[in-house]
Design a protein around this nucleic acid. Sequence first.
DNA 1: TGATGACTGTGTATCTGGTACACTGTTACG
DNA 2: CGTAACAGTGTACCAGATACACAGTCATCA
Lengths: 253, 253
Amino acid sequence: MAEKPSGSRDDARSVALLWNTRERARRGPRPALSWERIVAAAIALADAEGLEAVSMERVAERLGFTTMSLYRHVPGKAELVALMIEAAIGEPPALAAPERWRSALEEWAANLLGTFQRHPWALTATGRLRLMGPYELGWLETGLSALSATPLDPAERHAACLAVLAQVRSIAQFSLAPPKGSPGLTGERWNAETRALLRVRAERFPELTAALDALRLRDRPPAPGSGLGFVLDGIARRVAQRGARAPAGRPRR
Amino acid sequence: MAEKPSGSRDDARSVALLWNTRERARRGPRPALSWERIVAAAIALADAEGLEAVSMERVAERLGFTTMSLYRHVPGKAELVALMIEAAIGEPPALAAPERWRSALEEWAANLLGTFQRHPWALTATGRLRLMGPYELGWLETGLSALSATPLDPAERHAACLAVLAQVRSIAQFSLAPPKGSPGLTGERWNAETRALLRVRAERFPELTAALDALRLRDRPPAPGSGLGFVLDGIARRVAQRGARAPAGRPRR
DNA sequence: TGATGACTGTGTATCTGGTACACTGTTACG
DNA sequence: CGTAACAGTGTACCAGATACACAGTCATCA
């Protein structure tokens, strides 16, 4: 069967892999390969040449095994990608104490952005709704606990985290350097090419032209007036509101 | 050559297609097909069965032509998808007057969300940085002009629009109904399955467990305490700040 | 008006990539 | 020590994109 890039019947299998530690086989030859090595090779490949370069064949080649040998350790490509995501994300970071929720969230966002910058393919790979592994959910947990000392209720904390995550994804898309093989666009290049398109039609797109001309690609993410700044300010406002009235949800720690 | 799902050397070709109106051929038999019909068929197919179901063969089949006939009208699949995006997005909406920037932006977001709900595949298809067509840039222009009466400078307006867009994408991912063919996850289903995973491990993920239990999937997007609410509040704060000092950027209309 | 070349749709072939399946050899357990 | 479970291999097949050559059509121009 051909690739099913966003198939997700495999999600079930992926989940089993991500959450179950399977014990070593008791019989048979000792494995020369392991899914850990496969995943590492696949990640190295994806880092270097992008997710499209990751084929079972090329991963196997890197490892010096045949294509089909991979299937002894990984059920299929979809599951491999799921494992790659988990491995690339890794252990969630330690954040500032939740009393300073804002800097904790900023740290969280910065760490997340760092991950996306180290592994640009992860942005695409995580682009669809799918079941997650322990690391990935651990990141979410960490993000949420950055808000645990605020009077926000759990649903609001969740919304806040997802909002920050969405901003990080948006920032990442512009600031990622696409790998050599795939001539993906840089943010700079997108900007330049789009301005070129608009140059002839500046009257039809006055606001956009102005925006692209003024675009500050250099601004560090949580700068005021940036997307992340807006989100954090919005959260702050809600925190202030909630704090003024009765604290909602569980009491603050 | 096999599919290059996120190749973008083709972006150049796509742009030519999206921005240039090519005049009819002067010789030869009158075409029975047109790229408009191809795009319409492809969109219908994607709406019904998801983007993965869109293959040149299946599109051609729907039209009663051979696979290769499509290539007379569309350079390749990447370009077809680009055209699909443009067609699905369509003419940008008319918004409230920019004096009420907040409701204008809310309308903009709602319209965008509507588009994603009518064409769930568009979320994936627009997931990478790529050159855009006139409609898509028109939407951006419209979003920016919702902020044209505010004292925000052009870069801030741009950041604000992208922030709203990022929220819409995030919301869409949870609220989309995946098409029949691909067993993609609904937000509800994601929630249920993830809670099931966490049930055994509630101590490791206390915040997340609480968040998922409290999750209000029903809240309409710009509700206070939602992601979009945070963004809009954050923008409002900046507007107030800027308004208090000297207006930045071009003077308000 | 008829030749002609541009253009349309078609059929065939090739390439990439995922994966099913059967085979061979290995090793721990009974 | 036999044997069943397991590892890696080789071959085969399928889906999907697309290059290419061919045959029919029709506006234009000699």
